Simulated assay, not measured.
Amino acid sequence: MSLVKKNSLHSLLPAFMLLLVTTMIADSQGDDNLGTKVMVEVNNSLPGDASFNIHCKSKDDDLGIHIIGVYQNYKFKFKVNFWATTLFFCGIRWQGGGVTFDIYYAKRDLNRCPHHCLWLVREVGVMGFQQDKPTPDIIIPWDN
C-alpha cells in the first residue's frame, strides 16, 4: 500500500513545475542576456540631404513605416524572449536602392550587441556594428 495518496501527488505537481520554471528563468537571466532590454538604433549617414524609409516587423509586431531625414535616427526597444528566437527584420528604401534584412536575430546578436545594436545607413549599404566596436562587422549592400 502506498504511503502517498494519489491526490497529494496532483497537488505537488504545480509547485514542482513553478520551481522548475523559476529556476530556468533565473538561469537564463545570467550570461546569455535573455529577458534584458535591447535597443536597436538606425542612423541616417547618407550623403547630402537624402532621407530613407524604414519598415520593421517581428512575428508579433509591425512597427510601421518611418521616414528618417538627414542626421536623424530611428530607435526601438524590446526584450529578448525566453527561447532566444526574437527576430526583427526591416526594409529600408532610398533613392539609391533598397534592402530587406534581419536587423535583430537573437541567435546572431545576443552576444554581438546584447543591449545596443547600432546600424548606419550609408551610400554603400547598411552597416551593423558590434556593441562598443568602431568598425562594422556586417555590411549589406543595396539591391538595385
Rank of each mutant, 00 (worst) to 15 (best):
L110E: 09
L18Y: 03
F76A: 01
L34K: 11
Y105M: 13
V38M: 04
I68V: 15
V80H: 00
L87M: 12
D60L: 04
E41N: 13
R108C: 06
D49S: 11
D132P: 01
I67M: 10
I65R: 15
D102R: 05
S51G: 13
K79E: 10
V38R: 14
N53G: 06
Q131I: 04
Q130Y: 05
Q29L: 10
Y104V: 06
T22V: 11
V21C: 14
E41D: 15
G64R: 06
I140L: 14
V126K: 03
K77V: 04
A106C: 14
C117L: 09
W94I: 02
S11L: 14
G128D: 05
A84P: 00
D27F: 09
A106N: 09
T85A: 00
G125E: 03
K37E: 10
V121H: 06
F78Q: 01
R112I: 02
I25K: 06
L63E: 11
H115D: 09
M39F: 09
P14M: 01
V70F: 12
F82Y: 14
Q130A: 13
M24W: 12
I103A: 05
R93L: 08
K77M: 07
M39L: 09
T22H: 08
M127W: 10
D132W: 04
L19V: 13
A50N: 14
E123F: 15
I140Y: 08
G125W: 05
A84K: 13
N111Y: 09
M17E: 03
L12G: 08
L20K: 00
V38P: 05
F88I: 06
R108F: 00
F78Y: 08
C113I: 02
Y104S: 00
G125A: 07
V126D: 05
H55N: 14
C90G: 08
H55F: 07
K37T: 12
M17V: 15
T86Y: 01
V80N: 10
F76E: 02
T22R: 00
Q72P: 03
Y104R: 02
Y71S: 10
I138W: 00
H55G: 08
M39D: 14
S51W: 14
V126T: 04
S51P: 04
L19I: 11
V121L: 07
G35S: 03
K59D: 14
K57C: 00
C90E: 01
N33R: 10
A84S: 15
I92M: 02
I138Q: 15
D137E: 08
G125F: 08
G64A: 06
I138P: 01
D102S: 09
G35V: 02
N111F: 07
L12E: 08
G64M: 07
V40H: 07
L34T: 15
S11V: 15
D132C: 02
E123S: 13
H55D: 14
K79Y: 12
I138F: 08
W119R: 06
N33W: 04
L12I: 06
V99Q: 13
P136D: 04
I68T: 12
L20S: 11
T86V: 08
L63K: 11
Q130M: 11
G91K: 08
L46H: 12
G97E: 02
K107T: 15
Q29A: 08
L13M: 12
S51L: 09
M127L: 13
R108H: 11
D31S: 09
R122Y: 03
D60F: 04
D49F: 12
I68C: 01
H115K: 15
T135M: 10
F52T: 00
P134T: 05
I54K: 03
K37D: 13
